[in-house]
């Protein structure tokens, strides 16, 4: 498992840093269009549906004229961040599978399945 642990560690750190960078750029991009507005998180109003769809977010983030949707770029970074743990579990499971450790390949698969299902609930 040792070589695998190091690979896992690299994936996690790189993933986190890339996601953080995108979030930071996205935040600046968003703020550059909203520099004089008041913050609006005091009242809960939910978030629009397209913020669940990475393809739509990517399109909207750079849509000319629709500056209100620049925070979509931030959301893409957040998505990358959120993908980190499932990837971690998947890689660990694959590692167990290659080591012919069936018991732990199955345990990892169960955890991965719960994560997957939770995204569709």
């Amino acid at each position: 498992m040792n070589r695998f642990s190091i690979l896992l560690a690299r994936v996690m750190v790189t993933g986190t840093l890339v996601a953080a960078a995108i979030i930071a750029v996205g935040l600046l991009w968003y703020l550059s269009a909203h520099s004089s507005e008041l913050p609006g998180d005091h009242i809960f109003r939910g978030e629009p549906k397209y913020l669940e769809n990475p393809v739509q977010m990517a399109r909207r983030a750079f849509e000319p004229g629709v500056v209100g949707e620049r925070r979509s770029l931030v959301m893409i970074g957040i998505f990358l961040l959120l993908l980190n743990p499932p990837i971690r579990v998947f890689l660990a499971g694959a590692g167990y599978w290659m080591e012919r450790d069936r018991l732990y390949a199955v345990i990892s698969a169960i955890v991965f399945a719960v994560l997957l299902v939770s995204f569709f609930l």
């Binding site: 913020l51 925070r71 931030v74 957040i78 743990p85």
Partner: peptide, 20 residues
Amino acid sequence: AAASVGIYLKKGYLDPSLVA
């Protein structure tokens, strides 16, 4: 945390301009 964040997302708890 990853197991509940999908549900939070669907319910609109994740405002990107605050999460960032």
